[in-house]
């Protein structure tokens, strides 16, 4: 560095401690503020989350007034959701007298524009899916939102066959979406003409959800019915 350059760069130099002081001070204020807001909002957010899930569960299982959360544990059975338990969540819906109405499962599959997340209601008594609600999706409005609105399509989920095979490890018949107007089997979903990709995604989501959760539900069904 030449002498001239040194002279030019010297005057505005700020002492290092001033920078440290400022950055440290700002970081401290920032940390305090964030921690404070986090503490205040945490219980509210958790409550919001609970209410949102509960609404979805009660919507797919009409008549349910209470919900219990379960996780599918490593052994392929169910256990109550608690701090320590990890695994996929399913929700049991019970009516006022504590009778199990059904179990809500969540499934997801790739649709036309990103993943389609759906909640399905599974009725252990008839071994079938009895309701659906799209939790979130980016499907094209006017086409993709028929998944949740089109009465003809929703009729597919009135009693969609989800029986287990003889070993109880997987579904006896994979749930699939078939072309509009060609549904022949109780485990087939009649697609929406014009929203083929979205309705196919719905079928895959149902299949994913049922394949994972139904064996566990059926295994621990007796225990499940005693909970409330």
């Amino acid at each position: 560095m030449t002498l001239e350059a040194q002279i030019q760069t010297q005057p505005p130099s700020t002492p290092a401690w001033a920078m440290l002081r400022t950055l440290g001070g700002i970081a401290m204020i920032s940390g305090l503020l964030v921690a404070l807001v986090y503490q205040v909002t945490l219980p509210i957010i958790a409550e919001n989350q609970r209410v949102l899930t509960e609404q979805a569960v009660f919507r797919v299982l009409p008549g349910a007034v209470s919900k219990r959360d379960f996780v599918i544990n490593g052994a392929g059975g169910l256990e109550p959701a608690s701090e320590g338990a990890s695994g996929e969540l399913v929700y049991g819906g019970y009516d006022a007298s504590g009778v199990l109405l059904g179990v809500a499962l969540t499934g997801s599959a790739q649709g036309y524009a990103g993943p389609v997340n759906v909640m399905f209601a599974y009725d252990p008594a008839c071994a079938c899916i009895i309701g659906s609600k799209v939790l979130n999706s980016n499907e094209t409005p006017g086409f993709g939102d028929k998944l949740d609105l089109d009465p003809a399509f929703l009729a597919n989920f009135a009693a969609l066959d989800a029986r287990l095979n003889a070993e109880g490890t997987a579904l006896a018949n994979e749930i699939v979406t078939v072309k509009h107007g060609t549904k022949a089997q109780p485990w087939e979903i009649d697609g929406i003409s014009g929203a083929t990709i979205s309705s196919n995604a719905m079928g895959r989501a149902a299949n994913n959800a049922a394949q994972r959760a139904v064996p566990a539900i059926q295994r621990d069904l007796a225990w499940l019915m005693q909970q409330k």
């Binding site: 950055l23 920032s30 503020l33 807001v37 909002t41 957010i45 919001n48 949102l52």
Partner: peptide, 23 residues
């Protein structure tokens, strides 16, 4: 750096606030 830390702080606060208002 200081401005960004300050802005990020308030963005985080807004983020939590909106979650608390409506998911």
């Amino acid at each position: 750096a200081s401005y960004i830390v300050i802005i990020a702080t308030f963005v985080t606060i807004v983020d939590y606030a909106i979650q608390a208002i409506s998911l």
